[in-house]
Structures are given as structure tokens and as C-alpha cells.
Design a protein around this nucleic acid. Structure first.
Length: 327
DNA sequence: CATCAGGGCCCTG
DNA sequence: CAGGGCCCTGAT
């Protein structure tokens, strides 16, 4: 492991997302595999960030409640940050963390839905989001493909060790992502040596698209969903499953739900139809059900039910689920 | 020891 | 539009 960069300068700001805002259910996702770029405990998330060439150490702390939200965000950096930079970083984090999302209508809409009501009650104010950049999300999507969770964790760790940097701040030592130009200079063989297998080619080509400015996250945010979809599908190694997650988590389309992969199909079948995962409901039926019941909120609603399940699993094993998620 | 499938995607026919 | 192949790993 490379020696960490010690971040000494510290800047503190306060964020006030609109209520309802559930800090822990938003700042931690129990269905995600663990990565070295963050750490969570109730009320606190540490998260590294590579933004505008700056390696930053962030710490989000809950200082409010669901109905009166307040986040204290401390930002560590190597050099002192100027106000303009912090202002723009705040805007970026507000977008990425979906803090501007107004959930009042969603919460009200399903208050009489027998399945949704207790779940929304438990997690009121939870937002789906992307903790990192589009590029980083794409890399994660690639290492998820056709791999068990354990292997995904290994691949991600190897990439961080080899191309990332380590940041020391607030008593933590966390990994920070690499600039696309770093991996752009790597050879496919070099990546293969990190045991990412055939994904090396996808990582190279997606990275090249970012390193050479062929795709731009900020610009894509202002395009239509279908333009975003086409731009993402055009990336080598990125298909409908990855794009589905990205349109929801990264670009915040709360009704994006038109692809269900086999492992998710089994879990949805149990959750929404209470049938055995051995004989799952056809994906078309699931999609039609989501559309009919949740309409413009179908991705959001499924996110709530899904997260509810994985929070439950965090506290106690869920028998039927364990064999569907291969660790 | 061998074999197999995995939290997809590309490419071919 | 269906299905084989892909890197590697741990489970069997």
C-alpha cells in the first residue's frame, strides 16, 4: 500500500436538505458492496472525493432530524480551499447526493398502500443517489458484471491499491479514486494482472472516453433521459443493466425501471408477489406491476422496498435471501 | 483433482 | 433475437 497523503486543511459547512430527509438511510446503502473510499457509522459518513483535480476527505455528520434536517459537512484538503471552490463543491454534492429531491408527494401518495406504508414510514426521507462521479460508478458497474460480490470487492481493492491514492484525515485512512488519465496510460495487460479478467478491455475503453473528453457528466445532466441512455450504451462494456442503475442513481430518474436482471427478478418476485424465488414471476409482469402501482415513482418505490430488505438483513439474516446473493 | 456458474455484455449467426 | 464465450475464483 502506498503511503497516504495527509490532509490538514479543514473547511466546515452546513447543509439543509428539504424535509423529509433520512440521514442514515441516504448516507449508507446496505445493499452496496464495501469499498475503501468510505466508511459509515450511524450519524456519520466519511467519503473521499476526487473533484476538480483535488483529493478531498469529506465527513458528513447528522445534526438534525427527518423533519428538521441539518448536515455538517467537514472537508479536508491538502491546501486551503477558497470560498468559490467550496461553493461549487457544495452544489456538486447537493446534486450527487440528491439533496434537492422533494419527497413529500411521494410519501403522501402511498400512505394508504398496505405494502408501502410501513416501509415509507420506516425510511421516510431516504434518497437514492450516487456517492461518487459517473466515471467511478461506471467502473464499479463493470467490476460487478458476472462476478460474485467477493470477487468484485477484490477487483475494486486491487484497482484502488494500484491506481488510487490513500488519504489520511480525521483519524481515517481511505482510498481516493484515480484520474481517468492514469488508467488511460495503463495497458490492458497491466489491468489483467490485477485479475479483473476480460473486464480490462471495458475499463480501458470507458476510461479512454472520459480521459479524451468524449463523454462529460455535467453536460449529460442537461440532456434527456433517452440521450443519456444512448450515450451510456455507446460505452464499451456498458449494457442495459448498468445503464438502468445509472439513470436512477446518477441522473435521478425516479421512474427509470425497464430492465430487471435474473438475480433481481428472483428477489422482486418474493418481495412483491411472495412467490418462491425458484419460480420467479416473469420480468414483464414485474415491470407492468411496478408501472401500474408506482407510476412516476417506480424506481423510487422499488428502492424503498429493496433497501428495507437489506437494512433488515444487516440486523438479522434473511433466510431466503442469503442464497440469492452470492458472497 | 475437475467442473461449474457468477449482482452482464459483446459478438456472431 | 438466441446463445456461446469471456477472466478468475470459490463452491461442490
Amino acid at each position: 500500500m502506498k503511503s497516504p497523503i495527509s490532509l490538514k486543511a479543514k473547511h466546515v459547512i452546513e447543509l439543509f436538505p428539504p424535509a423529509p430527509f433520512n440521514f442514515d438511510a441516504t448516507l449508507y446503502n446496505p445493499s452496496h458492496f464495501p469499498t475503501a473510499d468510505h466508511e459509515w457509522q450511524p450519524g456519520i459518513r466519511w467519503q473521499t472525493l476526487l473533484w476538480q483535480k483535488q483529493r478531498l476527505g469529506c465527513k458528513f455528520e447528522n445534526q438534525g432530524t427527518v423533519d428538521s434536517p441539518k448536515i455538517t459537512l467537514s472537508i479536508w484538503s491538502k491546501e486551503k480551499l477558497d470560498r468559490q471552490f467550496v461553493k461549487r463543491l457544495t452544489d456538486e454534492i447537493t446534486y450527487r447526493y440528491n439533496l434537492q429531491l422533494d419527497l413529500t408527494d411521494f410519501s403522501r401518495r402511498f400512505e394508504n398502500d398496505p405494502q408501502m406504508e410501513p416501509i415509507i414510514d420506516r425510511w421516510r426521507g431516504m434518497r437514492p443517489l450516487n456517492y461518487s462521479s459517473l466515471y467511478e460508478y461506471l467502473i464499479i458497474a463493470i467490476v460487478l458484471q458476472n462476478a460474485t460480490v467477493r470477487r468484485t470487492v477484490q477487483m475494486m481493492q486491487a484497482l484502488y491499491e494500484y491506481y488510487g491514492t490513500w488519504l489520511a484525515y480525521d483519524g481515517k485512512k481511505l482510498a481516493c479514486f484515480w484520474e481517468p488519465s492514469i488508467v488511460d496510460r495503463a495497458t490492458e495487460q497491466e489491468l489483467r494482472d490485477l485479475k479483473v479478467g476480460y473486464r480490462a478491455k471495458s475499463i480501458k475503453r470507458v476510461t479512454a472516453a472520459f480521459a479524451h473528453g468524449e463523454i462529460n457528466e455535467l453536460e449529460l445532466r442537461n440532456r434527456s433521459r433517452e440521450e443519456q441512455r444512448q450515450a451510456l450504451l455507446a460505452l464499451y462494456g456498458i449494457g442495459p443493466a448498468s445503464v438502468g442503475y445509472i439513470l436512477g442513481d446518477v441522473f435521478h430518474h425516479m421512474d427509470e425501471m425497464n430492465h430487471i436482471s435474473p438475480w433481481e427478478q428472483k428477489i422482486y418476485s418474493k418481495l412483491f408477489f411472495d412467490v418462491s424465488p425458484d419460480e420467479p414471476v416473469p420480468t414483464d409482469t414485474l415491470l407492468a406491476f411496478f408501472d401500474k402501482h408506482f407510476g412516476q415513482y417506480k424506481m423510487l418505490a422499488v428502492h424503498y422496498v429493496w433497501s428495507d430488505l437489506f437494512w433488515r438483513r444487516k440486523h438479522e439474516p434473511v433466510e431466503w435471501l442469503e442464497k440469492l446473493i452470492r458472497l
